[in-house]
Design a protein around this nucleic acid. Structure first.
Lengths: 197, 197
DNA sequence: GTCTATACCAGGATAGAC
DNA sequence: GTCTATCCTGGTATAGAC
């Protein structure tokens, strides 16, 4: 395979997926028709079907892009030297996410989609595991540094607490989408005040 | 209007909505066709359209039933005399919910639906407000009884903490649907261990 | 009120030319 | 690889008899 062709192919897929994401954010996965995506991308039906087998493949590709960025970011945070306390992770993650996808409502749709679409379900589950792993590492490190726990004890605490911290991030996303008077700052500072250190 | 007619009407609506809910739980809102609901109910198209204007009305009706039960339950908990600590609320609520709707995945779909369907969105927002109100009352009462705070101070604390407790309930629902190895008991006991009392 | 049969349409996917 | 035009399925909603 020639190299240029591969690069072109990848760039085109990216261009299409990005356009699809814009459309999905606007109207939701289900309500977005292929015609919408075609219009948004400025391309034609033929062009799109040349790169993606169908709408569900497109949803999956968009989902992968959305969550992929997030996982990378979290991993990079583990290696930061003046380690922020675990509760502050939420703040950092949420602002990164908002920067990337604009409205978090896309995630609500993704979760809804996971219920019925096995491919999305699998992706979501896999990401949850990654997320949990990263949180556990992060919290364990924090417990060792801050409270002098042994690695084994720290891991135990981290395993317990990870579910709680993940819940808080999920709560942020849900509440920001569903409260019409959501106050981001109030939420985050409340978190930092009441979650364990 | 004759009384029997009204009663019959309401019973029939309930029968249809319940059948629709079974179908929705099985296949999801979008993937469920009117034909599915017709089959599940054992009735005919004509009968259903005689009681509901269309599929979206049916979704709304099911959503109202699902969340309505929950709100009622929470309110009744406030008046319980040996008041369980706020973190224990999660346990009680979640078991009530599981009992009612079987799998929590229906809620994920509801949240996804809220993004695009204004009627569902409005319902979700309204329920969130109720939920927050009930949590605030509950926590405030607890703070007064347990820590002897003044009502004003207790309200302040309760307002801050309510978002956190709601997050935890939402996290439970999401994680139970998205983790293939979700451990309900581990989640709940971790909550009770690390959340403020 | 409820049934059966069907009209009607949106929208996903493809055919074939360029 | 991409375009236009079109096919065709699945699915909502209605018509009309009972």
């Amino acid at each position: 395979m020639p190299k240029v062709s591969d690069e072109y192919r990848e760039a085109k897929r990216d261009e299409i997926a990005t356009a699809a994401m814009r459309a999905f954010v606007r109207k939701g996965f289900q309500a977005t028709s292929m015609a919408d995506i075609i219009a948004e991308s400025g391309l034609s039906a033929g062009a799109i079907y040349g790169h993606f087998a169908g709408k569900s493949q497109l949803i999956l590709a968009v989902a992968e892009r959305v969550v992929g960025a997030r996982v990378g970011e979290i991993e990079s945070l583990s290696n930061r030297d003046p380690q922020p306390p675990p509760a502050a992770l939420t703040r950092i993650l949420m602002s990164g996410m908002l920067h990337d996808i604009g409205r978090p409502s896309l995630l609500l749709q993704l979760w809804g989609e996971a219920v019925t679409d096995p491919a999305v379900q699998q992706l979501a589950t896999q990401v949850m595991h990654q997320l949990r792993g990263v949180y556990i590492n992060y919290i364990s490190l924090w417990q060792q540094r801050e409270h002098g726990l042994s690695p084994a004890d720290a891991d135990l605490v981290a395993t317990e607490q990870s579910l709680l911290f993940i819940s808080v991030a999920q709560g942020y996303i849900l509440q920001s989408a569903l409260f019409d008077d959501f106050d981001s700052e109030a939420f985050l500072s409340s978190i930092e005040k009441y979650l364990p250190r």
